[in-house]
Amino acid sequence: MSSNIKIKLMEVCGTHTMAIARSGIKKLLPESIELISGPGCPVCVTPQHDIDKAIAVAKLEDVIMTTFGDMIRVPGSRGTLSEAKMHGADVRVVYSCMDTLTIAKKNPKKKIVFMGVGFETTSPTIAATIKEAKRQGIKNFFVLSNFKCLFPALETIASSKKIGVDGFICPGHVSVITGTHAYEAVARRYKKPCVITGFEDMDILKGIKRLAEKIRDNSYNVEVEYKRVVKKNGNPKARNVLNAVFKPHDSDWRGIGEIKKSGLVFRKEYRDFDADREFNIKIPKPAPQKGCLCGEVLQGIKSPKDCKLFRKACTPKRPIGPCMVSAEGTCAAYYKYES
C-alpha cells in the first residue's frame, strides 16, 4: 500500500482506545496513519451538571443511589458520588441494573435511584429492567436517564471539517445492538468509510488495514470485521425494548455541547420511573472548567498531551476532566500507557 497519503482514523469507542494503548498498536503503524480517539466513553461525555444532580439526589435522606463503578469517581462541579458516599450518602456500585431491583425489594421504605449512563450497548438492559420493574409493580425504583445515542454524535464528527477524520473504527458491541444500517448513512453522506471491529489486537489491526484500503479505493461503505457477533440487522429485540421505554431527545455532551436527538427521555407509559420527574431537582449549570481540554479531546481535535493540566494537575488519582476518570477515557489511556 502506498504510504504517501496521510490518513486520520478515529476509534469511536473507549474500549478501542484502551485496547490500542494497551497493545502499543500506535507505535507499530507507519507515520502516514494517525489514530485519534472519539467520544465513545459514556462516563466521559456525561456533563458535570448531570453528575451534580445525581449527587444532590444521592444526598437525599431516603435515597439509595446505585450506578456502575466508573461513574462514582467522576467529578461534577462539587465533588463526586464517591465523596458523597464517604460523607454518608448511600451509594452502591452494581454490575447490572437488575441488581437495583433486588435492592429495591429489600428496602421498601427507601427510594432506589439508578444513575444511568451508557450508549446503545447498555441502555437496552436498563430499559429491560424498567419494564421488569413495571411488570412486578415495584414502585420505589427510579432511573436518572443520562443515556446517549452514538449516531448523532458520529454525524457531528463526520461533518466537522475541523476534525477532518478520514474513516471510523467502529465499536463491535454497540453494533451488536444497532446493526450496520445506521453507519451506512454516515459512510455515504460524509464519505467516511466505517469498519466495525472487535477488541483484540488483531481485530483492530485488521480494521485499520481495511479502512486504509477503503480510503485508497474511495470506497465509502461499511464493513464488519467482527462477524462472529455483529449481524447486519443488529438486535431488533433489544432496540424494541429500548424504544418502548425511551424516546430520543436533544442532549448535552460534556465538552461538546448539545447534539440533537442524542439523548433518551422516558415515554409517558414509563414516566413513573423517571427520577427527574420524581425528585425534580433544580441546580444551576456550573461554569465550564478552565484549562480542561476534555471537550476537544472527545472530538479528536486535541490530544491529551496538548492539555496543560495533563499529568500535572490532572491525574487518575485527582482527575479534573472526565477523560481522566474512566478507565476507558482517552486521557487515562494516554496517562497509563503512553509516556
Binding site: 502499543g24 463503578g69 466508573d70 456500585v93 449512563v117 450497548t121 489486537d201 487518575p316 474512566s326 509516556s339
Partner: peptide
C-alpha cells in the same frame, strides 16, 4: 513487550481498578 511486538510502560496502580460499564 506486548504480544504483537510493540512495547509500553507498565505503570504503578494509581487508584482502584473499577469495573467498566460498556
Amino acid at each position: 513487550k506486548t504480544r504483537i511486538g510493540s512495547g509500553r510502560i507498565l505503570p504503578i496502580l494509581e487508584t482502584d481498578q473499577l469495573p467498566r460499564i460498556c
